[in-house]
């Protein structure tokens, strides 16, 4: 792991989504290193085995086998060794109750996966840019749900 690059961990059971994500990082101005795990259990194992070189940010899918995103988020936030990790929820569906609960449970941002590839790429890059700026504070409720900036 190089010092100047951002280490990203993506937890998503969907092969296509992992493909889209890695594609979205191609040619990105910020150097990144992407690691992926394919379910919640593997995510928790990965974290416990890499306590000394934790990722800079986790992108977490909600619907995953064995351990879903909610459980992972709770475990991370309740673990003093992990609770500083920014967790960004990356989900297909948007439900207000779910979003409220995720905010309450300490997720950093919520992103609804866009269906258009360019939007997908933009939102991923925008979010990583935000993280790379080292914004450590808890976001307020208004900026919890991230959407693509029109440019």
């Amino acid at each position: 792991m190089k010092k100047n690059q951002l280490n990203i961990l993506l937890a998503d059971d969907d092969k296509d989504d992992r493909f889209f994500f890695s594609m979205a990082l191609e040619g990105f101005s910020i150097p990144t290193l992407l690691d992926t795990v394919v379910d919640g259990e593997k995510l928790m194992t990965y974290l416990s085995e890499n306590l000394l070189r934790l990722p800079d940010v986790i992108f977490l899918d909600l619907n995953m086998p064995r351990k879903n995103g909610f459980e992972c988020l709770l475990e991370i936030k309740l673990n003093p060794k992990l609770n500083q990790l920014p967790v960004i929820i990356f989900s297909t569906s948007y439900e207000q109750e779910v979003v409220n609960l995720l905010y309450k449970n300490g997720a950093k941002y919520f992103i609804r996966k866009p269906s258009e590839y360019l939007q997908f790429k933009k939102i991923v890059q925008q979010t990583i840019t935000l993280i790379s700026l080292g914004n450590k504070q808890v976001p307020n409720r208004d900026s919890f749900v991230l959407t693509v900036h029109k440019s």
Binding site: D14, D16, D17, F20, M23, N63, T92, S93, K113, P114, S115, E116, Y117, L118, F120
Partner: peptide, 20 residues
């Protein structure tokens, strides 16, 4: 309908990747 969202979104994403 909840589960249909995911494959549909991927179809849309792949179509936009090809068009792009």
């Amino acid at each position: 309908s909840h589960d249909l969202q995911e494959p549909l979104r991927k179809i849309q994403t792949f179509v936009t990747i090809i068009l792009e």
